[in-house]
Each structure stands twice: as C-alpha cells, then as structure tokens.
Amino acid sequence: MSVLTVTKSTIPGYVSQRNASFPNQVIMLTWRSLVTIFRTPAAVIPTLIISAFFLFVYNASLGNASNFLPGLAGKSYLGFILPVSVVSAALSGAGVAGQSIVRDIENGYFDKLLLTPVSRGALLIGPIVAGALVLGLQTGIVVIIGLFMGLDPQTGVAGLAAVMGYALLLGTGFAGFTVAIALRSGNAAATQGATFLFFPLTFLTATFVPVDLLSGWIKTAAEYNPITYILEAMRSLLLSGWEGDALLKGFIACGILGTFTFIFALSSLRGRTKRK
C-alpha cells in the first residue's frame, strides 16, 4: 500500500466537526439513490411500459365510450383515461424509493450511513426525492405519449404541468408509504408487495367512467378513495378547464394521503434508527 502523508489538519477541505448541511445531505443521498436506480433499469422500465400499455389498451377499447357516456359527450376519452395511466405511473414509480432504501438495509449500507453524522431525516428524504424525480420522469413520458396519441388539453401546457404536479404530489406521498414499509420490514419482497397496493387504489375508483355513473359498493369505495379526487382534478384540467372546486379537492386528497404516509414513514424511521 502507498502511504498517506497528511495529518488531520492538512486534509484539503476538511473542517473538523462541521458536517454537511441538511440540504446538502439530502442532495447527496438523492443523487446516490438516482445513480443506483438508473443502474437497475429493470426496476423502472417495466412500470413505465405497463402505464403506457394501459393508455394504449384503454383508449383503443373504450375510445368511443365518450359518444354514449353521460357527461363525456363531445369530449376526448383519451383525456379521460390518460390520468389513470399518469396515476399508475406515479404510484408504481414511487415504489423505487422504498426499493432503494430496502436495498441499502439488506446490503448493510444503511448501517454504514448510520455510523456517519448524517441526519436521520436526510436518510428518509433523499430516497423519497429520488423516487419523486423518477416518477416525474415516468409520468412525463406517459403525458408525451398521450400528446402523440392526440391529447388536446383544455388548459394547455400550464394544465399539463398541473397534471404533472398532482402526479408528483400523489407519487411522493405514496413513496413515503413504500419507504415506511421498507424501513419497517427491511425486506425487499415485503416492500415490493406493498407497492402493488396501488392496484386496488387505481381500480376502486372512477377508473373507466365518471364517479356519478358508479353505483353500489364500488361507488362508496370510490368516494372514500383519495385517488378519485386526484383523477377528477386531472380530468378537469384536461377536459374542462380550470375548475377551482375539483382542483382544491384533488389537492386536499394529495395532502391527506401525503400527511398520513409521511407520519408513517417518520415513525418507521424512528423504529429503524432507534438505538436499542
């Protein structure tokens, strides 16, 4: 081995007892999560393909439904169904945050980080921000595919940005949930299983028809499902225009979902990092 010639005081850039600031820690851990996520493309590409597949299949098979569905007359079914694919991409993309953390737990790197002065909050937020960026990319690709298929949003580019904003809020909230499961279980299979909870969330709602046309138990489920209000907010942007009531309900739904999942994630982080 070669020989280090420095003493502690001569290491360039070393400032004793002054560790990286919290934002810098988050940036570093976000970057690291992104690097590992994009080095395992198999974790990202299939979920993107599935979301695009939903869009193609639903639009191909139900594209003419707007001709006879009340409330959709004269409107684009593509604009109605695209939010389902966007939500699907957001929720499945959010899963990478949990996968990122559970990988670190399984290979021991999480414990290695605990031996550094890194903030425990940064350990949580870094992968969540990385997950948000990945889901943002995924939903962006789905929206672009929609534009190529003829999507003509009533609210223009700003409306599409708002749709993406809802997707980010929803996905980030769901990322908190997958991260919480990862921290609690420390198990990749359990975390992967938790990610698939998005299936009932996206189907126990007004997936194919407006909520007014649902009846019975599925209508009740849809009314309690926050995804319903997020879908309606996105659909209003794409099909109707800037409808304050729908947008506010969608925002509140994202907020409620996010609040619960972040409380869950924080409590799971405390459980994982608490010295015993």
């Binding site: 070393y14 560790n19 990286a20 810098n24 550094t116 002065p117 890194v118």
Partner: peptide, 14 residues
C-alpha cells in the same frame, strides 16, 4: 467525505 464536511472537489481528491 462529503457527509463529513468536505466540499465536492476536495472530497474527490480525498
């Protein structure tokens, strides 16, 4: 190195 307070350039050197 960055988590321990090095800036990026010096962290890479270290």
């Amino acid at each position: 190195a960055q988590l321990f307070g090095f800036n990026r350039k010096d962290a890479r050197a270290r």
